[in-house]
Design a protein around this nucleic acid. Structure first.
Lengths: 393, 393
DNA sequence: AAATCTACCGGGAACGTTTGCGGTATCGTT
DNA sequence: AACGATACCGCAAACGTTCCCGGTAGATTT
């Protein structure tokens, strides 16, 4: 006892397969498909109706023209009379037509979406990058698809597959803290999809990269501590497989060398980017028989953990312990004492990375050379490093 | 002078259209399509190759079987001999086959992706919700597509269109601070796409909603301030079009009434959720001829701005000014003094919202009733509200 | 020996677009 | 009067899947 949703007739209805749990029907008179929930024999009026969204074919039939014409009218092709176009547009909005990107992308083999893989977005850094990137992308008519690997290679691999399956036109990647094998990234190259790495870059893959000058940032931070009178400066570093922790470590040690200070291995600890472990590592440093009088931390979250721990233990910052972080997290200017840090242009990093990526997407793979962009850093001096007590400068 | 990328022959090649700027060719011998960048006549070897990703048809041809069989083998259909399936799998990985979700979704009219629209993700709240939601979604085999409206209705509307065009199976929405007209949300209903609102819900649209008990949270916060001895309690509230600011305001005033305190209009200010304006509004309260001795703030970011301003002006918190926020932002337990706040189960909100949504997606529209879920809040008492000086309790 | 069943596979339509090519009016030009 | 140009539109193939329907070969039952 199925009636057509349009002509309300019963006789011209035939079944037309089941799609995902609901019976589809076809009315021969109206030449229209529709479906009704089959578990509910008498659906409430508010939920009845054509769940089958309108297509260009529906518009075409309603106007007695061909779907080619509708398609062309919709995309502003010049071959279409102004009159017809107006009619199409009018009917499109009447039928609540929404173009099906899946179909469009399928035939044009271009999706106008960019994939982004980040390890997390709990902290300040990655959301800010993403916002910058998204701004550029949507200005260029692209949408983004954000994946978070949650610092796990397994889900990172899953993410690459998902993006590949969705046929994104390009991807932006900042890898996991534990990524050591990069094979899963190569698949993009094999499929002609440009990628650009940012922040946590991959050096063994031929691709564009954008990052800040970690070495210089670290160098200036440590030099600043030295100038303020700190002498036993420790480093709370990051995992060795990340290039940036290596660079910051190098900046640290070179600054020490430059000023004739010894490089003491026990003053260097590395944490795996988990906040809890930053705290643990800071504790290791503070528990040292000969305590450091300053710590240069890999990033602000780590510095904040160190600061909190110091406060708990009654260690005066900056009097007994100088602290400087990296990346200028907003919390750093709120916490007491305010944290000295190395500011990096976070939003710009997203923008620039996306700009480079989109350029390469438009050019097509093989028609561009990978680009390596280094962004400047800038030391922001605040209270946490104003010099040890008894050594005012 | 085009050679087949497989057999390296020249004679059997015919042109086969141009897709998006690159000429496509067809080798009659190998029955294979491929394309070369036409702007670069002699591409470097590293970038040469079949940009045309392998399809099930390629696998089928290589194995001399039909694409139906390949499809079935790939999805684990029982009709396929173990031997054939193994061969297909092997060939698939040899050809670096990646399924094309666009095509699959097109025919099944199901994308297994959920859209999420949030106003921003700079603060702690929304990223945390998203993480929770994503966890549930990916466990169920869905991927999410995150859009941020940036607190602008215009981009919110653009977001709905994008999600609609991408044919998401369902959407999670927390609306803009300025959304007053909800028509652009109705299109989901018309297209049979279930939506669930969270946090900033929409009451005029028939749909599921999940939020916290804002009224009770606010009530207990204000009651707490009263019990601690504060008497002139102000409220730094939010925009009136958001239900949650209304509810928190009601909790605030009812708590005052309950304890026989007068409701004074000049003690109620509302900000538009921009941090700068939170500061301005806090200033308005602190500039009052008769200054409030406590402020109950709409959320933690606002409370933090108030706290910073008070510190700048030398107003002692909690001695001269009690403060309590809402949502337990991590900064709140870092800032000095630590901020009393109403904790809400943020991650759970995402999880629950996604669970409800997925249920409705699976059931299909019309086969479920909208669900309204209120989550409990919990007052976290810290230093910022420990009582005015001279009124210790 | 015929009939039925099972296991496996292929043909082909369908999903909703885009787009090259061909067709038909209409109009102006020789 | 014939021809070419122009403006507009339709046909049909293609994109890469899924899945219904049918077919064949061998095994089992009657």
């Amino acid at each position: 006892m199925i009636r057509c949703i349009k002509c309300e007739q019963v006789h011209a209805i035939t079944k037309s397969g089941v799609v995902h749990g609901r019976q589809r029907y076809y009315c021969k008179d109206c030449r229209i498909y529709f479906s009704l929930p089959e578990s509910d024999p008498s659906p409430s009026p508010s939920h009845t109706g054509p769940h089958h969204s309108a297509t260009i074919l529906d518009i075409a039939r309603a106007l007695n023209i061909s779907k080619s014409t509708v398609s062309r009218a919709l995309q502003g092709h010049k071959d279409i009379k102004e009159e017809t176009r107006a009619a199409v547009l009018e009917m499109a909005s009447r039928l609540d037509y929404q173009p099906n990107l899946l179909a469009k992308s399928l035939v044009r083999s271009k999706t106008f979406t960019i994939g982004i893989i980040v390890p997390e977005f709990m902290n300040y850094f990655f959301p800010t990058v993403i916002i910058g990137a998204q701004e550029i992308a949507s200005a260029a008519g692209y949408t983004v698809m954000i994946c978070q690997s949650q610092e796990s290679v397994a889900t990172e691999i899953a993410n690459t597959r998902a993006l590949l399956a969705s046929r994104v036109d390009g991807v932006l990647i900042s890898m996991t803290r534990e990524t050591e094998d990069f094979d899963h990234f190569r698949v993009f190259g094999r499929h002609g999809i440009p990628v650009v790495f940012f922040n946590r870059v991959c050096e063994t893959i031929e691709s564009s990269r954008v990052y800040v000058n970690d070495y210089e940032g670290a160098f200036s931070a440590v030099e600043h501590l030295i100038e303020k009178g700190y002498r036993r400066i420790a480093h709370l570093g990051g995992p060795p497989n990340l290039q940036l922790s290596q660079n910051r470590l190098n900046g640290y040690s070179d600054a020490l060398k430059r000023h004739g200070l010894p490089l003491q291995p026990e003053l260097i600890v590395r944490y795996d980017l988990q906040p809890e472990n930053a705290r643990l590592c800071a504790a290791r440093l503070l528990d040292l028989p000969q305590r450091p009088d300053a710590i240069f931390c890999l990033n602000d979250p780590a510095a904040i953990q160190a600061l909190l721990l110091a406060k708990e233990r009654g260690i005066n910052v900056p009097g007994d312990l100088g602290l400087v972080g990296f990346s200028d997290d907003p919390i750093s200017s709120i916490i007491d004492p305010h944290l000295t840090t190395v500011r990096q242009p976070v939003g710009d990093m997203g923008k620039i990375a996306m700009q480079i990526l989109l350029e390469q997407v438009e050019k097509g793979i093989g028609n561009y050379v990978p680009e390596h962009k280094t962004l400047p850093t800038h030391l922001v001096v605040r209270e946490s490093s104003s010099g040890p007590t008894g050594h005012p400068r």
